[in-house]
Design a protein around this nucleic acid. Sequence first.
DNA 1: TTATAAACAGACCGGTTGTCCTGTTTTGTC
DNA 2: GACAAAACAGGACAACCGGTCTGTTTATAA
Lengths: 184, 184
Amino acid sequence: MRRRVLDVAEESFQARGYHASSLGDLMAAAGVTGGALHHHFPTKKALALAVITERVADAIQQTWIEPLQAAPSARAGVRAVFEAVAVELEQQGYVRGCPLNNLAHELSLAGDEFRVALVDIFAGWRQAIADKVRDDQLNGGEVGTDPERFAALAVATYSGAMSMAKTSQDAGVLRECLNGLQKL
Amino acid sequence: MRRRVLDVAEESFQARGYHASSLGDLMAAAGVTGGALHHHFPTKKALALAVITERVADAIQQTWIEPLQAAPSARAGVRAVFEAVAVELEQQGYVRGCPLNNLAHELSLAGDEFRVALVDIFAGWRQAIADKVRDDQLNGGEVGTDPERFAALAVATYSGAMSMAKTSQDAGVLRECLNGLQKL
DNA sequence: TTATAAACAGACCGGTTGTCCTGTTTTGTC
DNA sequence: GACAAAACAGGACAACCGGTCTGTTTATAA
């Protein structure tokens, strides 16, 4: 039951945003009564916080961090993620954007609890990339690359490219940015 | 009167977002009655569309396109804008994000009229950068640089960096990304 | 079985939202 | 000065929002 609510909320926040998603819509979509929803999530804010810490963080983990760690190098991992996302977006035919960025824009200034939860995910994301660069350096690669700087640039480029892809409803800009990034 | 409403709406959309800004708040802040607002902007959507086409487009023009065109080169222009924005954010002590990206995230999927208006601004932005690169190439510089690719990368990096800066309320990531970008 | 709490149902409420409507005032034009 | 159009005032309204409340059912453990 709690999982059903979280599923629907994650989907709706992604597609419509937090403020545009009413609890009534979520209840109807999840087939849940008001009492049940209120029992698990006393307020709408609590629900959003749960979506962020339980679902958005997991989405970054699965689409970015795990593929990156499994890649032969940081650079190859970044390329693989960009391409995998681009392929996925092209297959489904529409672009809803990065879950983290969507909520970050809407909720970063809507309460410090939101902001802290979001900034933690960004920090973990960047650290995973930086750690991978350091791994490469231990193996003799990536000399002269600042791990933190590379991580920040990769995350920023991905986030910005997803923004444009969402607005233009075209994943092509992801590939364009990836090609520019790989020239570093 | 119309200008007052637009001023307040631009400010509120930037600080709180579209859905979180009620017309009642805007009316109170602008000192405007419901009738006057309805006369100039029949619906809230019309108001947002006016903010996008009249104010957000102008903000990009003034903070990005004009400084870029006045710069000695595309690369120098991009650096100048990043640094100017970073300095401005540090002086004011808080980060509200890029006006275009804020509205793009919230409204890209909320109607094609919004999306088209936003994508036009992105396109003009990228074209101005690409044109500047082509200028450099006519002067013998930037050999081997794809103008469109460089423009997409610059916009994506800026947008993503501003997202992170907004979430962390720290403009430092802007400088970090700029340094990475300039190594290209 | 029984006691105890968690999980869920469903109606209810005050407040707010965006929009609309009927007048009144101002502005521009001949 | 007459008149039409635009600009503005301000109330009214129906729909909806998030949150609360009181019961009922289900699980857990002694």
